[in-house]
Design a protein around this nucleic acid. Structure first.
Lengths: 391, 391
DNA sequence: TTGTACGCGTTATCAA
DNA sequence: TTGATAACGCGTACAA
């Protein structure tokens, strides 16, 4: 017969549901809830119960704290009990429950990354770089992808927040104009590193490529190769990346005393659909440009495709330069001249930066923008005799 | 004066440390540890405390269960208190703690996906497809990437297991020969769907493209265009994908009464480094092949690059067909003939399948392999006059 | 309709 | 060196 472990009476006991597969009781006298300690029936686990440290402890007749210590190389433990515990853990195929761990530690050892798209290799490359650094530092990476949708981006950050990531690395969608979902992190002292698609005045830690310099080099290269009516098919005007690339374009024109022709400058977004429309517009102008500096490679590729369809010869009648050095750039036509960004380094730098903030709080107050250098890769879309190279 | 809440005596109490900033006591009589319930000092939150349902409850003077009910549209709740709670939640910027939620529910509403690489667009495409389906069903996707390394793959699955994903979608690395890390999931009744890179005899739920058919079509196409010494640069022999593609190759040769030449069949892996070596070997044979069917596009591209460097004319002297229709295939040289796989559908199918298993247990016992059809995309690497098409 | 009192699995603190 | 217990934040079966 059952007895209340508190008031030691067996009279006014009532059953009160099941807990973890065991009958729960309630003593009416002292209103105490309890379950009876049962010899653990070995093969009578309900459903999909995963073995816990408690299971190990009960099997061995030690306390769960001892088990916890054994599993974490705590110094204060007898070597033999430790051995026994580890053996039993192996035997029961114990797998630590990260959720419980994270809950009690209020830390997840996870950083989230949100990127706008997966469909060019630019962001996946960055992710790989970031992941390498973070993994080595003992952190996990939760990868989220917004598909260039503001709505998805908000949902992604929400999920990461709910899952209590320790930090966030983000490059925003071209739709994003409201930044509350990022401010939610800052409000909670969860560090954010913005990269690539950053906003002026938002955030303190950023990793970007030198877009200005890359754009300048690209346009200067076009000018030096004889192009004069150079158009720019740009990106969404709210992103710094677009501004900087346009700035490089304008500065290069200025330096070489070329007129700025407003009808040759278009702000688009990053979708190839829009790019095709704007490219057609440019090439159908009464006085079409003799060269186009595109904000990125997919845009440039749309231009090349359209030019081919219209029978415009590249590079004789139209010079084209892109941005990012997508793998396709090396293979399309005679090659697409483009500005190469150090994707690996961007990812690594962002990871290193966020690790720094998460670890040493002093860094958190030092605003920091890391600018990585870009490099012009010259191929056949902008120059006649490009030396044979193996990309 | 303090009183023991268990034996209701205030005599033999002793202080026993601090818990969460509160004095802890111990009653010598009943050896019961306790802290005194203190009125929660409102603005005395420690460190980076996120607001919890308890905070909301205390602000409003209701119980946490009431708050919980309000936040989950539980029917048994007064509409006014619910409104007040939701307003207060908004005011305090409450964000649910998914970790705690998952812990208590023993479910995470998350499925993990492990892919071998990120650097071609094949897997990212699949991920996007899977994510779309899962998101709609209210599930999150944890994306892991092994970089074609067995070690990383094991680490990835370990992390997913520790984080208690509800299901796993996986395409394994080419190094993988031991499957214990997958069996760990099956042992715990966590459903797995294998896709693309699957193993015979491992697992019950799979999504694959019709590799055999695709390979057969590819080689038949080469034969019909006059090629006779057709080589095959294959994949790792343990993967079904490699076997099936080779089988398609062999069957096509057989059907057209072409001899099987063992020196023209090579098993490689999926790295372009190895591909370059084997391609060189094939082209340097005393009697080199007049066509090569490559196990995937990166391999085929290595062949094209090498051929160009050696001055071998494509397709006149060498026909090449790849597999997967990587975006580069449409742009390289005169285009690479390749077998197109329905990447979106693969991702979606895998997601739908795992949702089915997770929801209805009856499905879990019905082994199922979904085979999606492939399609030959003919371009300039295998035929002289390919009709002008806009890819 | 609301409150009480656990338990989920883990770590940390203190006592023994 | 080990054990007992609180707490992490939330969901929920019962009781009220």
């Amino acid at each position: 017969m059952e007895i209340c472990p508190k008031c030691s009476q067996g009279t006014s006991l009532m059953k009160a549901g099941f807990i973890r597969g065991k009958q729960r009781f309630r003593c009416k006298d002292c209103s105490y809830y309890f379950t009876l300690p049962t010899a653990h029936p070995k093969n009578e686990r309900r459903g999909r119960h995963q073995t816990t440290i408690i299971d190990i402890a009960q099997e061995l007749g030690v306390s769960n704290s001892t088990v916890s210590r054994a599993l974490h190389d705590h110094p204060d433990i007898n070597l033999d009990t430790k051995k026994a515990i580890l053996a039993k853990a192996q035997e029961l195929d114990y797998q630590p429950n990260q959720l419980a761990h994270n809950l009690v530690k209020s830390r997840t050892n996870t950083v989230g990354i949100v990127v706008p798209e997966f469909l060019t290799q630019f962001f996946p490359n960055i992710i790989v770089g970031a992941q390498r650094v973070l993994r080595q530092a003992g952190y996990n990476l939760m990868i989220m992808q917004s598909g260039e949708s503001y709505e998805n981006e908000v949902a992604n950050t929400r999920t990461l927040l709910a899952n209590r990531v320790d930090g966030l690395i983000v490059s925003m969608s071209h739709e994003t104009n409201n930044y509350d979902h990022f401010l939610a992190f800052e409000k909670r002292n969860i560090p954010i590193v913005y990269f690539n698609r950053v906003i002026e005045g938002l955030g303190t830690h950023k990793v970007v490529a030198n877009d200005y310099q890359g754009a300048f080099l690209a346009v200067e290269h076009l000018i030096q190769n004889g192009y004069r009516r150079i158009a720019h098919l740009g990106g969404p005007p709210n992103l710094l990346i677009s501004k900087e690339r346009k700035r490089g374009y304008l500065e290069a024109l200025t330096k070489y005393d070329l007129p700025l022709l407003p009808e040759l400058v278009i702000n688009g977004d990053f979708t190839s659909q829009k790019a095709a429309i704007y490219a057609r517009h440019l090439l159908d102008l009464p006085e079409p440009p003799d060269a186009i500096f595109a904000v990125n490679d997919p845009t440039a590729i749309e231009i090349l495709t359209l030019a081919k369809a219209k029978g415009i010869r590249i590079p004789e009648e139209l010079g084209v330069v892109g941005f990012s050095d997508d793998p396709i750039a090396a293979h399309i036509g005679k090659g697409l001249t483009t500005v190469k960004q150090p994707t690996d380094q961007i990812g690594e730098a962002a990871a290193v930066m966020i690790l720094g903030i998460m670890r040493g709080e002093e860094l958190a107050f030092a605003p920091e923008t890391m600018v990585l250098e870009t490099e012009l890769v010259v191929r056949g879309s902008s120059i006649l005799n490009v030396e044979q190279r193996r990309d």
